[in-house]
Amino acid sequence: MTDTTTLAVAARAVGATKIYGAGDTEVRALDAIDVSFEQGRFTAIMGPSGSGKSTLMHCMAGLDTVTGGQVFIGDTDLSTLSERDLTLLRRDHVGFVFQAFNLVPTLNAIENITLPMDLAGADGDPAWIDEVVDTTGLGDRVKHRPNELSGGQQQRVAVARALAGKPQIIFADEPTGNVDSNTGAEILDFMGRAVTEMGQTIVMVTHDAAVAARADRVVFLVDGKIVDELADPTPEGIRDRMNRLGT
């Protein structure tokens, strides 16, 4: 899986730039970034706080828009899409896992998992949904509301929701940031299996080297620029790079 050239690209950025404010208060959150995320790979984006890693993810995922350059999901240029088409693209082709508040508190676990399909008015693939629900290991608890589930269970439900619609790519923003390390490992295993066993593409933002080491590839971001990357990383290798980048 190291031969990146043979793999199709799930999402890419070309000269992606994001500027907040103007004049003296101008902040360049993304500075002409070029990056590609291949299909069936698990990529981590790392960087110190304020490096722009979350902004990059938001822009790649169509949650936010770039002020310059282009962002593609598959072959679709997001900058050409209307707000409505962008929403539909997220619904049908992108999966999300956030650090917290991933689930709608008034819906139970299974309803949260099928929510994107319900929004689309589609039934989804029942066999696939059953399989995804099985892998969460929630058992009978799928009928429970989020506040009756543990933090780890909630995040697994969130991952399951991202998987249920068979999106082209899943973006995860510090998915283990709010849980203890054992639970975090469990969630990362779950995400890892989604990539290796189900062929999913996952892009994850994290600041934790141990977490990033579970990915196939790590991209380093500093001051809105990609400064380095690492294939088949180890925690030590990542820490080494991070130290060299001065964080």
Binding site: T87, L88, F96, F101, L103, L115
Partner: peptide, 11 residues
Amino acid sequence: LLRAIGATPGQ
């Protein structure tokens, strides 16, 4: 969250 996972403003 709803908007992020694909609920349109209309929805």
